[in-house]
């Protein structure tokens, strides 16, 4: 199905809100505008999730990025519910700070360290998915250097859990196309059942040409919705 086609949907997606979240409204807007999906905001202190088909953990600077990015949010009451939701096979998408929260919650493996350059990087990047498609969208983070030890990295490769890798325009995955020093150029990662996706770049910021020329974020969101 074309990612650009507007379809009526009965799906209900929860978008989490932490103090410091700043991409929550963008996620809600992308789901409503492009997929006609009802999106509801869920506050971080909730101890029970409403009836949902999927959860999105948006980007931002939850709890001021104190301690480590995502570390304090990982202990929020709502995340205990998201853990249970994911364990039951629920679909979860973590974007940027959402990805950091997913790894700090141990829902996804690894850790996101300070970028190799020690700087906050905000720019357009190209991503390659396992099928070889090249997608273009922005990244904006200071702690996005994905790290796992060599053994764990081998497991991720063997099990096909690497969702997106930073690449160049031609699709080459190499050191020059790695903006933050991430292990194996990893920009996004699946859980074992492929229901949980964490990624540093922002698909919700690439849903309209007016946002910078790329609509490739819709492809990511379409794929996520199809896995619900």
């Amino acid at each position: 199905m074309s990612p650009l086609k507007v379809v009526a949907s009965s799906l209900r997606v929860g978008v989490l809100q932490f103090p410091g979240s700043n991409c929550d409204a963008d996620c809600v807007d992308a789901l409503r505008r492009h997929f006609q999906i009802e999106a509801v905001l869920v506050w971080h202190q909730e101890t029970k999730l409403p009836k949902l088909d999927a959860v999105i953990i948006p980007g931002g600077f939850s709890f001021g990025d104190y301690l480590r990015s995502g570390a304090l949010a990982a202990h929020a009451p709502v995340m205990q519910e998201v853990k249970k939701f994911a364990e039951k096979g629920g679909a979860v998408l973590g974007i940027c700070n959402g990805f950091q929260i997913l790894v700090e919650s141990k829902i996804l493996p690894g850790m996101l360290l300070h970028n190799l350059s020690q700087t906050f990087i905000c720019k357009t990047v190209h991503l390659k998915d396992p099928a070889g498609n090249i997608l273009t969208m922005p990244m904006a983070h200071g702690e996005g250097r994905f790290y796992v030890d060599k053994k764990a990295l081998e497991v991720l490769n063997e099990e096909g859990l690497i969702a997106y890798q930073y690449c160049d325009l031609k699709g080459d995955v190499n050191e020059a196309s790695n903006p933050n020093g991430a292990a194996a150029n990893i920009a996004g990662l699946y859980s074992r059942n492929k229901k949980v996706l964490g990624m540093m770049p922002h698909p919700e910021r690439a849903t309209d040409v007016a946002m910078g020329g790329s609509k490739d974020g819709l492809v990511v969101l379409r794929n996520f919705i199809d896995r619900i």
Binding site: L67, A71, H75, V103, E104, P109, G110, M111, L113, V148
Partner: peptide
Amino acid sequence: RYLANPVAQ
């Protein structure tokens, strides 16, 4: 549990 992440620290 909180101050360090054993994955890399």
